[in-house]
Computed example of a mutant assay.
Amino acid sequence: MSNGSWFVFDEFVMGSGMMCQRCTQSNLQLPGGVELDGSRLFRDRMYIQYGVIPPARQYKSSTEGRNRHDILVAYVIDNKRYKENDRREINAAMEEINNYTIEHQNRSIADINKLDWPLVKVSYIHYYRIGEAHKKKTSRFNATPIDARSPTYELVETFLGAQLRLLRTMDIQITGPGTGSMYQTFLPDGSVVINVGGLIQLRAEDQNITYTSFMEQYMTSGAPYLKGLYYPINDRPKGIKRQQLVKLIREAAKLIMNGFSMPVNPRDNLAPDGQLFVELCDKDKALCELITGREPGTSFLCYHSWVEELIHERGPWREVIESDGKRKSHCPFNRTLMRELRDKYGIIHHEKSVSQSKTSVSKM
């Protein structure tokens, strides 16, 4: 990976089990994704490595290289977090979008350009099924496993290679959090990622109250050639609804066809809770250092957590009452400031009074 310059890094992180699985940055970006253009460089290198031509570069607008009458390609990525009702609503939303496209796709270019909504074809996919047809096939090439040279002439068909060829065609990716979100880096310039979120598991210690979790927001904010949209944070606990998903898909299509500017401001690619975290980190320096510094002696729980756990005061951020009556959390932070910012960003938080909690700090 190179853009013609040498870089000196203050810290180099390699994954090892749970260590640094969630190395959160103060700006909630994928490190190097924006300032070093690392996300795009990594994307293009992977395409080349697997013998696929990298997506075309767009420099200023998502409209570059497009015609307004083009039919946009959208995919809903399967996710284990979708409930049965969610899947029904997703299918209904796909049917509505696709029926609109079928109804208008044979009109003249002039008529298509006057439609209220751009035309979109939506499909549902499972990443693990992409490339299954090649699983038992032998390579068309005489690959030599011991040859360390770049495989520009010897290519073996793989699942990732097949997935990249599909990702290269996507204009809109609709995904929940988790593994599905990690593929967004490979999308072409000028694409839109819709994160429909998930729900945190109900736990007795959290009073069996769930909340929205978008998790890998840093992947979106760290890819300035993409635009991120999010399911309304306060509505997601009610389940995915057809009307809202249709609205998001149409909003994504309009953004693409009207031309959103690039590079996208990383903060604009965060959900409300992600934007809250960035502002909180800027104002509560002690908290920011606790989470991002990863200094020796710091409790692992204080930096091995998603930002939504902090914002909804879960796990090590939960306020509990000690035996002497003092209120405390395992990981300290300016709770008053955080709650003020939660109101500022309009994030609804449901919780009983801490005085009703029997949890003790010693149990954490």
Score class of each variant (00 low, 15 high):
Ser2Asp: 15
Asn3Leu: 06
Val8Pro: 00
Phe9Ser: 13
Val13Leu: 13
Gly15Trp: 02
Met18Asp: 11
Met19Asp: 04
Leu28Met: 15
Leu30Cys: 07
Pro31Lys: 02
Gly32Trp: 02
Val34Arg: 09
Glu35Ile: 06
Leu36Val: 03
Gly38Gln: 10
Phe42Leu: 15
Arg43Tyr: 03
Val52Thr: 06
Ile53Gln: 11
Ala56Pro: 00
Ala56Cys: 06
Arg57Trp: 07
Ser62Trp: 11
Thr63Tyr: 10
Asn67Pro: 01
Asn67Leu: 12
Ile71Thr: 09
Asp78Met: 07
Lys80Ile: 11
Arg81Phe: 03
Tyr82Lys: 01
Ile90Lys: 00
Glu95Trp: 06
Asn98Ser: 01
Asn98Thr: 06
Asn99Ser: 09
Tyr100Leu: 03
Ile109Met: 12
Ala110Cys: 06
Asp111Phe: 00
Ile112Gln: 06
Asn113Tyr: 01
Asn113Gln: 12
Lys114Glu: 05
Pro118Asn: 04
Pro118Gln: 05
Arg129Trp: 04
Arg129Glu: 15
Arg129Met: 14
Glu132Val: 11
Ala133Met: 10
Lys136Leu: 08
Lys137Thr: 07
Arg140Tyr: 04
Asp147Arg: 13
Ser150Gly: 08
Ser150Arg: 10
Leu155Thr: 10
Thr158Pro: 01
Leu160Arg: 13
Leu164Gln: 05
Arg165Ser: 07
Arg165Ala: 05
Leu166Trp: 07
Leu167Met: 15
Asp171Pro: 02
Thr175Gln: 04
Thr175Tyr: 00
Pro177Met: 07
Ser181Leu: 13
Met182Thr: 15
Tyr183Arg: 11
Thr185Phe: 09
Val193Ser: 11
Val196Pro: 03
Leu199Arg: 15
Leu202Cys: 04
Leu202Glu: 10
Ser213Met: 06
Phe214His: 13
Tyr218Ile: 02
Met219Ser: 04
Ala223Cys: 14
Tyr225Arg: 13
Gly228Trp: 05
Tyr230Thr: 03
Asp235Glu: 15
Ile240Val: 12
Gln243Cys: 08
Gln243Val: 05
Lys247Met: 13
Glu251Cys: 04
Ala252Ser: 10
Lys254Pro: 00
Met257Pro: 01
Gly259Asp: 10
Phe260Ile: 04
Pro263Tyr: 05
Arg267Ser: 02
Asn269Ile: 07
Asn269Lys: 07
Ala271Lys: 06
Asp273Glu: 15
Phe277Val: 12
Phe277Lys: 09
Val278Cys: 03
Glu289Lys: 14
Gly293Thr: 10
Glu295Met: 14
Glu295Asp: 12
Leu301Phe: 14
Cys302Tyr: 09
Trp306Lys: 08
Val307Phe: 09
Glu309Ile: 03
Glu309Cys: 07
Leu310Tyr: 08
Glu313Lys: 00
Glu313Gln: 12
Trp317Met: 03
Ile321Gln: 14
Ile321His: 06
Gly325Thr: 02
Lys328Trp: 14
His330Glu: 14
Asn334Thr: 08
Thr336Ala: 15
Arg342Asn: 05
Lys344Trp: 04
Gly346Met: 05
Ile347Gln: 08
His350Gln: 13
Glu351Lys: 13
Lys352Ala: 14
Lys352Pro: 06
Ser355Glu: 11
Ser355Arg: 09
Lys358Glu: 10
